[in-house]
Computed example of a mutant assay.
Amino acid sequence: MIQVKLFDYEHEKDLEADVNLFLKDIEENKLLDIKYHVAVTSEDEDEQIYCFSAMVLYRK
């Protein structure tokens, strides 16, 4: 069965740490793909908000 795990953080280091922690429990041959995305938005002219996300596809 193919599964997905979604991650979403405001800081890239938080995303990296959580994805790495999750991957420790996945056998390498069960990992299918990792999709990565960065989005940026601005609430006002002085502040930008970042969204770092990843989707891990794996076999259970």
Results as ranks from 00 to 15, higher is better:
A39E: 10
Q3H: 13
I26V: 03
D25A: 06
N29S: 15
Q3V: 13
H37R: 03
Q48Y: 13
F7A: 00
K13D: 12
K60W: 04
L21Y: 06
R59M: 07
V40Q: 05
D33W: 02
V56R: 01
E12G: 05
I49G: 08
E27P: 15
L6G: 00
I34C: 03
A17Y: 08
S42P: 00
V4R: 14
L23C: 04
V4P: 13
Y9P: 07
V56M: 02
C51T: 10
E45Q: 06
E47I: 03
V56G: 03
K13M: 09
T41Q: 01
N20Q: 11
K60T: 11
K24T: 10
I49K: 11
K35N: 15
Q3W: 11
E47V: 04
I2N: 14
E28Q: 08
H11F: 12
D46V: 12
E45P: 13
L21D: 06
Y58E: 01
K13S: 11
Y58M: 02
M55R: 02
M1Q: 10
I26L: 00
K60G: 07
Y36P: 08
I34S: 03
E28G: 12
L32M: 12
L21K: 04
I49H: 11
L6W: 02
K30N: 09
L15R: 04
D46F: 14
I2L: 14
D46I: 05
L57Y: 13
E43L: 05
I34Q: 04
A54W: 00
D18T: 00
S42M: 02
D14A: 09
V4Q: 15
I34N: 01
Y36G: 07
S42F: 05
E45W: 12
C51E: 12
M55I: 03
N29G: 15
V56N: 01
A17I: 07
R59P: 02
V40H: 04
L15Q: 03
V19Q: 02
E45T: 13
D18V: 00
L32F: 10
V56S: 01
S42C: 02
I49N: 11
V38R: 14
E16W: 04
K5N: 04
Y58G: 02
K5A: 08
A39L: 05
D33S: 12
L32S: 10
D8G: 07
Y58V: 04
H37G: 04
V4Y: 15
F7M: 01
